[in-house]
């Protein structure tokens, strides 16, 4: 994968996650504004890249990025899963550090095959121990998988599954109109 394509993907991720926050044109006083409640822009970019590997865009339809999964996780970490905040903050840092050590680049800058290789290592707890003293790599990965699934397959009102993207994929009729669906 050429450097150009990687840059494009990063731009694409950036554009997509910003677009859903509706925060493209900003007055200068809000330059540091991000559409997120919990994540920094860099954290969001990194997590978006991970989620996109967990549910990638492919011939079956759009993936986690386009479904806005990052907004689901961000919102729930802020409102509900507050006890997971540290796990994410430390874990995302540890992912970047591990990625720099193993592949000399930030995770979201890696090509797909390297990202997958990295995540398989993470799943198997095979990332450099020194960065995972307070957090289990595989445990954190399992948490991200679960949250990604919730954001992608759960109802849109919680921030993900934008426009019922996943319902469309599985051919579950939507929006759900009580008493009407399947009876027309």
């Amino acid at each position: 994968m050429s450097h150009q394509i990687i840059q494009d993907r990063r731009e694409f991720l950036k554009a997509s996650i910003m677009a859903f926050g509706g925060a493209i044109m900003l007055p200068s006083c809000l330059r540091n504004y991000t559409p997120f409640l919990f994540f920094t822009a860099d954290e969001a970019l990194l997590l978006t890249a991970i989620c996109e590997q967990i549910i990638p865009a492919d011939e079956n339809g759009p993936g986690a990025t386009q479904a806005g999964v990052i907004y689901y996780i961000d919102k729930q970490l802020y409102e509900v899963f507050t006890w997971e905040q540290d796990k994410y903050r430390l874990g995302l840092t540890a992912i970047n550090e591990s990625s720099l050590e193993l592949f000399s680049a930030n995770f979201d800058m890696l090509p797909t095959d390297k990202q997958l290789l990295f995540l398989k290592k993470m799943e198997g707890n095979e990332l450099p121990d020194s960065y995972w003293k307070d957090n289990s790599a595989s445990g954190f990965f399992r948490t991200i998988i679960q949250h990604t699934m919730q954001g992608f397959y759960g109802p849109p009102r919680h921030g993900g599954n934008k426009n019922y993207i996943s319902y469309k994929m599985i051919n579950l009729d939507y929006p759900y109109v009580v008493g009407r669906n399947l009876y027309e």
């Binding site: 590997q53 549910i55 990638p56 993936g63 998988i145 397959y153 994929m169 599985i170």
Partner: peptide, 11 residues
């Protein structure tokens, strides 16, 4: 449990 294959199963 994740990735392209997981998604394909769901679809």
């Amino acid at each position: 449990r994740w990735g392209k294959e997981h998604k394909a199963f769901q679809a």
